[in-house]
């Protein structure tokens, strides 16, 4: 790598606070995954465990989208443009779960 070319570019020194925050979010994601892992083997299977897993997944999704993808620090208009259409996904979840149960009842 030739150093001569890069002489005119000013490298801004690293902001330790920022990097610290990145690693903090990483630690949160790792800890939540470990908690999910422990629950998978200690709690009885059922609707409560499924709800806990879904809740923890949404926590992880929030940290990835808000911090890693930086959405939390964007303009309000951009945040809502991305978040509002995901309501359609919630609708699909409800619709297809009802449908799945209906198929099960017809088959059995």
């Amino acid at each position: 790598m030739s150093q001569e070319e890069t002489n005119n570019v000013q490298v801004i020194p690293e902001d330790k606070e920022k990097t610290k925050k990145i690693w903090k979010v990483a630690a949160i994601l790792a800890i939540v995954t470990i908690i999910e892992f422990i629950f998978a083997f200690t709690l009885p299977r059922g609707i409560i465990l499924v709800s806990i897993f879904l809740g923890l997944t949404i926590v992880k999704a929030f940290y990835i989208v808000a911090e890693f993808m930086h959405l939390k620090h964007e303009q309000k208009a951009l945040i809502w443009s991305i978040m509002i259409p995901t309501i359609l996904i919630l609708w699909l979840v409800v619709a297809l779960m009802v449908e799945g149960t209906a198929i099960f009842n017809i088959r059995n």
Binding site: I89, L92, V93, L96, M97, G100, T101
Partner: peptide, 17 residues
Amino acid sequence: AFSFSALLITYGLIRYA
């Protein structure tokens, strides 16, 4: 995200069926 949701929700549908 819609494509992946469609796949994952289909998993839910088929599992409950």
